[in-house]
């Protein structure tokens, strides 16, 4: 979503983005002329008249699980967004019985919060696990 019109979205997709991604952008490109939706989400920069790089993860119940907002010059890293979605999906599937520690990615150990784990996280999670 940006403040550009759907006509400019069409030109950008058809003329440039389709050269980077075969078939073009595979999801709807939304137009928010005037920034009303961006304002509601707290990402519209009134002075610049554009929207900052906001990214919201919304679960199947319509609940916001996470967001990130960057100023324009720095791009996102999609793999971190995907990792977070996988983590939220795991937590949701476990009905909240599991949690993903810092550095978690699919296949790695999860934590099962409860009385037995209090004061014992240091036994099952090591700082190196943030990096491996």
């Amino acid at each position: 979503m940006s403040v550009d019109s759907i006509f400019v979205h069409k030109m950008w997709n058809d003329y440039e983005l389709s050269k980077m991604v075969p078939g073009g952008v595979p999801f709807p490109m939304l137009s928010d002329g005037g920034g009303k939706v961006g304002t509601a989400y707290g990402v519209y920069d009134e002075d610049a008249g554009v929207e900052n790089r906001g990214r919201f993860i919304i679960d199947p119940d319509g609940v916001i699980q996470g967001y990130e907002v960057l100023t324009p010059p720095v791009g996102r890293h999609l793999s971190e967004t995907l990792r977070q979605i996988q983590a939220f999906q795991l937590v949701r599937q476990s009905k909240g019985t599991e949690a993903t520690p810092s550095g978690w990615k699919p296949g790695k150990m999860t934590l099962k919060p409860g009385p037995d784990l209090v004061g014992k996280v240091c036994e099952v999670w090591k700082v190196e696990m943030e990096y491996d």
């Binding site: 979503m1 940006s2 019109s5 759907i6 979205h9 069409k10 997709n13 999801f27 709807p28 490109m29 939304l30 137009s31 928010d32 961006g38 989400y41 990402v43 610049a48 554009v50 929207e51 900052n52 790089r53 906001g54 990214r55 919201f56 993860i57 919304i58 679960d59 199947p60 119940d61 319509g62 324009p72 996102r76 967004t81 979605i85 939220f88 999906q89």
Partner: peptide, 27 residues
């Protein structure tokens, strides 16, 4: 309003209930 698969259309966020959604804003 949206541009999607060569067509102009309209998108409502709540139509995506039941799915995971990534909503992205950009300048």
């Amino acid at each position: 309003p949206a541009y999607y698969k060569g067509e102009f259309t309209s998108v409502k966020l709540s139509d995506y209930l039941g799915k995971w959604v990534v909503l992205c804003f950009y300048p």
